[in-house]
Design a protein around this nucleic acid. Structure first.
Lengths: 323, 323
DNA sequence: GGGAGGCGTGCTCACATGAGCAATTCCTGC
DNA sequence: GCAGGAATTGCTCATGTGAGCACGCCTCCC
């Protein structure tokens, strides 16, 4: 019985979706009433006999977005499908982030941004005139120790320029050698002013880094490979605005954190709009940490990362990760 | 412009097919009229952004079936999708053939069948009582030279038994050594009677063989590897009811054909219902030959073979195959 | 044997949708 | 700058479709 119903479902689905016949026609063709055909089609869809797929580089996974919003009380989520061809996931996610910013309402008067490859790529994808009068503030210390210097600044400036506003840069290293220096520099009028602007931003945009030697913070000379190894040993999964956190979103090394300049994690958590853009195989752990510890109100990511985040959620948060 | 319309199509398709929202909900969501949304969806389907697929082992490719019917004036065609997993295509095609026979109307009073792996597999898939009172006649000489003997008989008997009718076997070798012997045996009252019944069958069911050393005719000792090599050299692509034909459906070796017992190709061509069941990579050429020379009125095959047959048709029949 | 409950079926009705058409806009060539 | 034509848009209307309901059948349990 079941098998013959299934066969009818298949035939009905073929006639309906491939031959675009009406349910009535299918009914008389298969000797069924049109309501029966309707039910068979519903069944075929439920059983997954009929698979409807949206294939487009800029398609999104709305069902996963909904799950993310619900599980983690996010204000919003954007999930980009993992590409079947080899094209770059990071690029597509950056594009989606640019789209999101562009459509963000209310338009933020001041946008706090971090820096790094991801944010830089988002800046590249923002078209000229994506907004009118969006000012940009850096929310963590810039890179300035080696050849890479200037990237952080150019990211912020580029976003501000295309958004028709002014960029305010944070004239400070990301991490200082002594806590006292950090306190001193933050007290400096210029820096204090920027941090104040940053604190008052109407939206934040940032990414997250992985806790390994490939980090931009290592690259820039702020941290050594040994520092990273130590952080990992203490449970760090990655960093957000230069601050290393563990799987539960807690600061791993308070001494290090005390030497780090910029917006605090508490400020991010309290923000109305905090957009985290995190993608890629290596960033699953840090994405989980960011989302589950409410560091963002909006997550923009790829399908694989979203699945990793949700899978953890399904098993409950009590299950510990094996290291 | 085009790109933004495309994006709207994608968004609309997502909301419609994944979120099952109504078109005017989508309209108000995207700030469009509901007619615009309808048009976007049509466009999305036409552009292939929305891909609807029917995934089921017993699904069929109705569009290819239609093409086959139209290109080759077939009464009917059945095309089974090529399985994505490793499961046997031959088996699925045999199952489809059994389904087809079962549903065939009017029910044939007498069914002429050939023998071989394919027909045997079809017999296996016919359920007990698939018809009431279908008599079966063999349409070509049986296997009788080696251990395999009996298969041909059992195929026919099995089909007849499950179809509630009697089997009439053709008590003759498939190929004789001398033409005169063939004439003599065909004149014999018993054999002549069977051939007459075969000629009067209301439907035929047969497969086709490849012209290579793996042929059942070689296996059974009727032909040597050298014979096959000679046939191939003369353009043979395979055999139908023991008769070797070239790409255009012509008998390759009239001398050999004169020694072959059974229904002639002309009889098959003239038949109202001649069901050819041909599947598998190696049988593309013979399938093309059978279909394009009208040896069957119904083709049952797999997707890949159907595509091969149709591709040839698209290029026109004038293009010669390179050997 | 008889009743209760569950399941499948056919139907009504309200809603969703596509075809076809007028109105508008946009473009193009003069 | 403007007329003509093509494309696009909003609409009417007929049709297609799914939700919900009533009926009958089957089964299971008393």
């Amino acid at each position: 019985m079941t098998t013959s119903t299934e066969m009818l479902s298949v035939r009905a689905a073929e006639l309906y979706y491939e031959e675009s016949k009406t349910q009535d026609e299918i009914g008389s063709l298969l000797g069924l009433t049109r309501w029966k055909v309707g039910r068979l089609l519903t069944q075929a869809r439920e059983l997954g006999i009929v698979r409807i797929e949206i294939v487009h580089p800029r398609a999104r996974k709305l069902s996963m977005e909904r799950e993310l919003r619900e599980h983690f009380s996010l204000a919003d989520a954007v999930v980009v499908p993992s590409p079947s061809d080899g094209s770059s996931v990071a690029d597509r996610v950056a594009e989606a982030a640019a789209d999101y910013l562009r459509a963000l309402r209310p338009v933020p008067g001041t946008l706090g941004v971090s820096w790094g490859r991801t944010v830089d790529s988002i800046a590249d994808h923002l078209p000229q005139g994506w907004a009118r009068g969006v000012d940009v503030v850096q929310i963590n210390g810039g890179v300035s120790l080696n050849r890479r210097s200037g990237t952080a600044a150019s990211t912020a400036v580029s976003i501000a320029r295309s958004g028709g506003g002014q960029a305010t840069l944070l004239p400070s290293p990301a991490i200082l050698e002594h806590r006292d220096t950090r306190v001193a520099i933050e007290a400096d009028r210029t820096v204090a002013g920027v941090l104040e602007r940053a604190a008052g931003a109407s939206a934040y945009l940032y990414s997250a880094g992985v806790a390994d030697a490939s980090s931009v913070l290592v690259d820039s000379g702020y941290l050594s490979r040994e520092d990273i190894a130590m952080l990992v040993a203490r449970g760090a999964v990655g960093d957000v605005v230069g601050r290393y956190i563990d799987g539960d979103g807690n600061i791993v090394d308070h001494e290090l954190d005390g030497r780090t300049v910029g917006v605090s994690l508490e400020q991010l958590r309290a923000a109305a709009v905090a957009i985290a853009v995190i993608s890629g195989e290596s960033k699953h752990a840090i994405a989980r940490a960011v989302v589950s510890s409410s560091l963002c109100s909006v997550l923009i990511t790829d399908e694989a990362t979203a699945r990793a985040v949700l899978d953890q959620a399904d098993f409950g948060t009590t299950i510990q990760e094996r290291s």
